[in-house]
Each structure stands twice: as structure tokens, then as C-alpha cells.
Nucleic acid binder design. Structure first.
Lengths: 187, 187
DNA sequence: ACAGAAATATTGACAGTGTCAAGATGGCGA
DNA sequence: TCGCCATCTTGACACTGTCAATATTTCTGT
């Protein structure tokens, strides 16, 4: 009977509440509003309470990003499940990828930005899970030959398009839906 | 006696000095250190002086990003100039693109992030210039047919790889130089 | 069962930030 | 020459993240 996860203390589950609050703030008001004190307010605790659960603000961001990766992973799986053939699965994943990024731009940017500590265990795990997911799909579609290089190309193409789109770096005249079709057809 | 900084109450070119200072801070200490007050200190003026040249902090960031686009444009031109054939020029641009992003990650992220006001005239111009540069190279290499869609694919691929690389989202086991070759060969 | 230990939360402080409002300064045209 | 006015300074305000000290609740050993 050593220690168990802090579940029944003062707040109950402040750690989880802070992550959830942060996620909601991020979705609703964007990255600029995502603040330690704002999370604390939303969770109904004092401004320094998070300190005991997240040594620094970046640690909370990392945890929020990790939950983003989990949703992301699920979205890609759901997309792939709609298709039968392996190549079609990969393309469907590409579409789901961009759809997710456009639906949750702030979370997506946090996930793929570098303002998060690379030490986070949870984040590291979520990242490599997403990576394995892609590599598996690539291998299923095209065989194990140079799978890593192919996976990097695939990821780069889709990630680049998603980033350019959500950061408004694509020409306004571009038909993004058609561009997405062109891109996924190249996977 | 040297306590007499030549009473430049009026700086002369504070606007330009602030942009330059910001660029240097960005290159040397990263985005987190890029602060209005830090730029003012580096330019030797008081903390509120920038107010008259940049209504808000984001306006200064936009101007710094615009200078980044200018260097970027030049780097791509220099890369392309080393090759003769149009297709080889395009691939050389791709290599220069990634090289620039890796050499100036903070500036690059600022250029392609969305934390900058889309109203900036200078920034808008620099962005569309870069876009035209790419579209021209694509057209020269593959003809005007669907040039825009092809340009978007090209940009997405290279931008995605650059972003993943500088944000440490690529597997450590990956040979990035080889991956870059694979990617440019797909342009 | 109960006191002490450990975990959790609060309060208050500090340095740093962007922005605003008022005043000081000095270049430049009438 | 004189006065305008863009420019710069000073000072303030409401924020932010982080730290230290204190208070409060839960856990644990006996």
C-alpha cells in the first residue's frame, strides 16, 4: 500500500481539472488566453495551486498537448476505419489529419510547437504513438521498404498543408478542399 | 565626462533600430526573449518609446517577420542560381528552404506562425512575393498546368518537413539529410 | 485512536510584461 | 524668432509566472 494517485484530496482531482480547463480555454479563446492563472480560476482554486501539480507552466502545456495527441490519434483511427484497402486507409487518415488541425487549430499548434518541455513522459509517449500509427499505415499500404523515409514524406506533406492552412499562409484564391484532394492523392 | 550620450533625444531611426534589435534578440536568445522592452533597451530608449512607431507589439513582430521573408527570398534565389535546369532549380530551392529554416528557426517560426496581425502591408507583400517566387519556379519546371495546386503541394511538403525538424518532432533515429534528399527528389 | 508527517491549497510578494496617459524635449516650418 | 507637433520619457496599471511562508486537510505509524 504505497501511494496511490491523488484522487481524494482537497479538490479531488485538481490536476485533471486544470488540464481540462486549459483545454477548454485553448479551444474557446486561443493560445493567448491560455494562462496558468486562468486555468486556476476556471478550476476554482487560487493562483498558486497549480504549482504542486505542475512545477512550471510549460509542464501543464505539455500535458494539454498530450491529451491533444490522444484525441488526434483517435481521429486518425476513426478516419482510417472508414476504408478497406490499406492505401485508401492512408489517404483517409490524411483527410482526418487536416480536418482535425482545422477543427482544433490552437491545440494542434501546441502539439506541434516546441514551447513545451521535451522531458514530459506523457507527451513523449503520445508523440511516438502517433508516429507509430502513421508508420504502420504506410507499411500496410506500401510495404516495409524504406517505411521510415516514406512516413516522413507523408507526414511532412500533410503537416505542412495543415500548418499553412491554419496559419493563413495559403493564397486566399486557393480552393483548399481541392488542394487537400491533390495532396492526399499523393500519399 | 563621458556621461554625455549625445543627447539623441530623437533617435534618428528608432523604427529601424527596433526592428534590427528585435531580429538580433530573436536569433540570439529565441522567441521567449523577444520583448518590446528588450528591443527598447537594446535600442537605448525608454520602454514606451516603441509605442510611436508600432501601435502594438504584434506590429513590431510583423515587421521583423517581413525582414525574415526578405532574407528568405534571397536565400531561395541564391540556391536556385546554382543550378541550370528548371527542375534542378526547384529542388535546390527546396534544399535552401530547409537550410534557412534550420539556420534561423525562431525567425522562420515567426514568419509562418499566426501571432502576427494579417493587416501588415509590408508582411502581406513579403508573403505574396515568396509565394510568387515558388509558383514561378514550379511553372518553369513543370509548365503552367495546375501550377497553383502543384505549388501548394511543394510548399506543404517542404514547409512540413522544416517545421517538424526545427520543432523536434521527427524521430531521433531519422537521418535528416537523407530524408531531405528524398523529399526534394519528390518535388 | 490519535499525534505527527505529508500532501494540498492560500496568501502575499516580486520582477517582468504590454499598454496607456501626461509631461518633457527638440526639430522644423510659419 | 516662435510655436507646433512628432518624438521620447516617466509613471502608472493590470496582467503574468514563480517563489516563500502559512494554513488546512488527508494519510500513516504506533
Amino acid at each position: 500500500m504505497k501511494k496511490k494517485p491523488p484522487k481524494n484530496y482537497h479538490h479531488g482531482d485538481l490536476r485533471g481539472a486544470l488540464i481540462k480547463a486549459g483545454r477548454e480555454i485553448l479551444e474557446k479563446d486561443g493560445a493567448a488566453a491560455l494562462t496558468l492563472r486562468a486555468c486556476a480560476r476556471k478550476a476554482g482554486v487560487s493562483h498558486a495551486a497549480p504549482q504542486h501539480h505542475f512545477p512550471t507552466a510549460a509542464d501543464l502545456l505539455a500535458e494539454i498537448a498530450a491529451t491533444g495527441y490522444e484525441d488526434f490519434h483517435q481521429a486518425l483511427d476513426d478516419g482510417a476505419a472508414k476504408e478497406e484497402a490499406a492505401a485508401a486507409k492512408l489517404q483517409a487518415m490524411g483527410r482526418s489529419y487536416v480536418t482535425f488541425a482545422k477543427a482544433h487549430p490552437a491545440v494542434y499548434k501546441l502539439m506541434f510547437g516546441a514551447e513545451t518541455p521535451p522531458k514530459s513522459e506523457h507527451l513523449q509517449h503520445a508523440m511516438s504513438a502517433a508516429w507509430n500509427q502513421l508508420t504502420s499505415a504506410v507499411t500496410a499500404a506500401y510495404g516495409p521498404d524504406e517505411a521510415q523515409l516514406r512516413a516522413v514524406s507523408t507526414w511532412s506533406l500533410v503537416h505542412g498543408f495543415a500548418m499553412l492552412a491554419i496559419n493563413h499562409r495559403l493564397p486566399p484564391s486557393l480552393d483548399q478542399a481541392r488542394a487537400l484532394e491533390t495532396i492526399t492523392s499523393r500519399l
